[in-house]
Design a binder for these strands. Structure first.
Length: 419
DNA sequence: TCTGGGGTCCTAGGACCC
DNA sequence: TCTGGGGTCCTAGGACCC
């Protein structure tokens, strides 16, 4: 059996751990730049606030309804996530951390356990030790565990939020209840396509012909279908090194000058390089993109990206920044108001089996230099040591008007309890 | 005025090989 | 007049997830 443990309204719940007076009240968390809503407490959902709601459109409603608003505090959420995952890994021999707020546990050798009770026990422990409420779905396959989790979330009883699908009757009942567009792996396009075939529930989907699914949709949907039928097809995935790493941002204002974008692109490349060194890889290609504001269709639009194959593999911030700027130079056009840009690095090779190129190689001196840079930034603060091409005067700032403290990762911001 | 960020996988089609 | 068959690799674009 697989258990899917999912934190309820994760970011909103993280904020509530440190402001328990907000329990029972509507809470939302905003994206970077305080752009749009990315997490909502149940009370906020009940007010009809949709996922992705633009803050500026909903600001008045928030004030009127007393919604508590937070800017995204990813340092806090990341740390809280680690705490939850560490705890969960004690409850099963194998665990797949599926996202920041979700994990699959493989419950092998639990034949004599009451899995509903086991789920409740996990939930209680996580709540008590981290303050985060979770829902738990248990079933013979991953896709069905997702379904069970939805039921646990939707119908929590007073003290528990755990549901087990352990018979075919329960499986069919659950699948008949679940709308096709709510199935894990069926997004907007696929559900539209399926509805044309008169598939409106997950159960209808499992009745389709395998060949039809494979040839009209794809192998992915066929695997999903089998998994929903109770035939384990999706296994636990091992955590592996990333295949691409991205740093992209929307800007608070529009940028029209090349120099402004150059600074941003350089900083993004430096940030990618740092993440790359953390996983001990080098990259062999990078992509740079710039784009205007797609929400301003009355303005001239321009989207452009460029992939650069590197002449040698590297994880040096200096070299990646240089290549990224070269690419930017080629795609930048005057006369547009740029709103967003990013750098994506890909095609990784391990740090320590570097191919020596014939003509050009990564500067070997950068290895020691990057080590020092990482060490300094780790001890004195992020981005304290920067390249000359980066924001020397710290002009660039993200809009974060309602940022909470980094309670768990910054000593100066630790929670104070008055007794 | 103001609309996020970071990933994965699959498919189709083109280029190329013998 | 007549123009094969079987592969691999790469890329762009699209779909999905959180």
């Amino acid at each position: 059996m697989y258990a899917l443990v999912d934190c309820n309204n994760f970011y909103a719940s993280c904020e509530r751990v440190f402001q328990p007076n907000l329990i029972g009240k509507p809470v939302v968390v905003l994206s970077n730049n305080d752009g749009c809503v990315i997490a909502r407490s149940n009370e906020a959902k009940d007010l009809g606030i949709p996922m992705g709601a633009p803050y500026f459109e909903f600001k008045n409603l928030f004030i009127e309804k007393g919604v508590h608003v937070f800017s995204a505090n990813f340092a806090l959420y990341g740390d809280m996530s680690n705490r939850v995952m560490t705890l969960l890994s004690e409850y099963a021999p194998e665990i797949e951390i599926y996202s920041v707020d979700e994990a699959f546990l493989k419950l092998q050798g639990f034949d004599h356990y009451n899995l509903t009770d086991y789920g409740i026990e996990i939930g209680k422990r996580v709540k008590k030790w981290t303050g985060i409420p979770v829902s738990i779905g248990v079933a013979p396959t991953k896709a069905l565990a997702k379904v069970a989790n939805r039921i646990a979330k939707k119908y929590p009883t007073q003290t528990q939020s755990s549901y087990v699908i352990d018979s075919d009757e329960k499986r069919i009942k659950a699948l008949k209840w679940l709308k096709i567009e709510d199935v894990w792996g069926i997004g907007r396009q696929l559900s539209k396509k399926l509805q044309l075939k008169h598939v409106s529930t997950a159960y209808d989907f499992t009745l389709l012909d395998d060949n039809w699914v494979k040839s009209n949709l794809s192998i992915v949907e066929l695997r999903l279908k089998l998994d929903l039928q109770g035939i384990p097809t999706l296994g636990l995935e091992e955590s592996q090194a990333k295949k691409s790493i991205a740093t992209t941002r929307s800007f608070e204002a529009n940028y029209t000058k090349y120099e402004q974008l150059k600074e941003r692109i350089s900083t993004f490349a430096v940030s990618c390089a740092e993440k790359l060194r953390q996983q001990h890889s080098r990259c062999n290609a990078l992509m740079v993109f710039i784009q205007t504001n797609r929400h301003r269709s009355e303005l001239p639009q321009y989207h452009k990206s460029m992939v650069v194959k590197l002449p040698y593999s590297t994880n040096s911030a200096i070299e990646l920044s240089q290549f990224a700027i070269k690419a930017l130079k080629l795609i930048f056009k005057e006369g547009y108001a740029y709103k967003k840009a990013g750098v994506v690095i890909m095609d990784f090779t391990p740090e320590n089996d570097q191919q020596i190129a014939i003509f050009e190689n990564s500067n070997p001196k950068h290895i020691a230099l990057m080590k020092s840079m990482d060490k300094l930034n780790l001890s004195i603060g992020q981005q304290k040591v920067r390249l000359g091409s980066q924001d020397a005067k710290r002009v660039w700032k993200m809009k974060q008007e309602n940022l909470s403290n980094r309670y768990t990762t910054k000593l100066a911001e630790i929670i104070v309890v008055k007794i």
